Amino acid sequence: MALFLEKDGIHLWFAYPDEINDQALLLSYADLLNDEEQNRWQRFHFARHRQQYLITRALLRTTLSCYRDIEPKAWRFDFNAYGKPEIAQSQNQTGLPIRFNLSHTDGLIMCGIALTHDVGVDVEHKAKDRASLNIAEHYFAKAEIAGLKQIPEHQKPQRFFEYWTLKEAYIKARGMGLSLPLDQFSFIMPEQQRVQIAFEPGMQDNPDHWQFWRLYPSPQHIAAVAVNAPPHNGFRLSACKVVPLQSRVPLPISAMLASSNNHSLA
């Protein structure tokens, strides 16, 4: 039976590639890939990256088949002008269209699923060297740089990744990638209040048309979700830990969310 996805729901699927090592299972994932995916999988130089890519594609294909009566191997994808993948129109015209987005980092793969509303997700490993004020000064908005400078030194790496994942989730939901300048929009994260976004005039976007969530899916990871819908839509998030083709375990979404996000579940 297909999973039911509410119009105001976002389903988050998490796979932990370091825990998926069964060779027979991995071979079954390879059988799901189309020719282009097979070629790309084989081109990865390091085994770790090949395995991550394989699990990512298996996660997407098996997850989509939870919502539609289509075999995982049969899914086809189109790409917009900026390279963002989406379900081929011929497969997404029956019923309400599914939107999806993928992100992966060391030790974690994340897939977000929504109906009709564009969704973006991003996940990062906090041990990456990317968290530095120098990088922020090159890519972040002035308000975000100022915010980083005002907090204690030990809090800066986490705040950096909170900004970074929110920015990535937003540009992925927009479907335009890095053609959107990262310094032309900024995030405001007041304590116990909803995450907000502000735009420079050239962005031609409305902050009232967006909702955002910060998540902490493991002690090592920070993630963000963006959806192109006004806050009064009252979206609900749910989460599962999955081993594609093998198991699915619900995760307590409230334990992942930053405290200032919690009211956004209602």
Rank of each mutant, 00 (worst) to 15 (best):
E6H: 13
I145G: 03
D205H: 10
P190H: 13
I188K: 06
D22C: 08
D118N: 13
H232A: 14
Y29H: 05
L5C: 12
T116N: 04
P17D: 03
P244R: 12
C111W: 01
Y216E: 10
E6K: 14
A47R: 02
I10F: 04
E124W: 07
I87M: 08
F140G: 00
V195N: 09
A127Q: 10
S260Y: 10
F161H: 04
A223Y: 06
W13R: 03
A114K: 01
P190D: 14
F4V: 14
T116S: 11
A173C: 13
V121F: 07
D129T: 10
N228Q: 15
A224C: 05
I87D: 05
Q204D: 12
R194P: 02
S65R: 06
R194E: 14
D31K: 15
M1C: 11
R68C: 04
A143T: 06
Q91M: 12
R50M: 07
A169G: 11
E137V: 06
A223F: 10
L96F: 09
E153H: 14
A141C: 03
T62H: 07
S260P: 01
F4S: 11
K241V: 02
P85R: 05
T63S: 12
S259F: 07
C66S: 13
S90T: 13
I145M: 04
W213T: 07
P157K: 14
N206V: 09
L26Q: 14
C240E: 11
A224E: 05
I109R: 05
I113N: 01
G83E: 08
R48V: 15
P157E: 10
Q23H: 13
L64G: 07
P244A: 14
I171V: 15
C240P: 00
R99N: 12
Y53V: 06
N21W: 02
G175C: 08
A127C: 05
T116H: 08
H125G: 03
D208H: 14
A114H: 08
E37C: 09
L215Q: 03
L182W: 02
F212M: 07
Y82I: 08
A47V: 09
R214F: 01
E144P: 07
L54H: 10
A2R: 13
P252I: 04
F187V: 01
Q196V: 01
Q91G: 03
R68H: 09
Q155E: 15
E86K: 08
F4D: 10
A146F: 01
C66P: 00
Y67M: 03
W13N: 01
R76M: 00
R248W: 06
Y139I: 00
P207C: 09
A127T: 10
K128V: 00
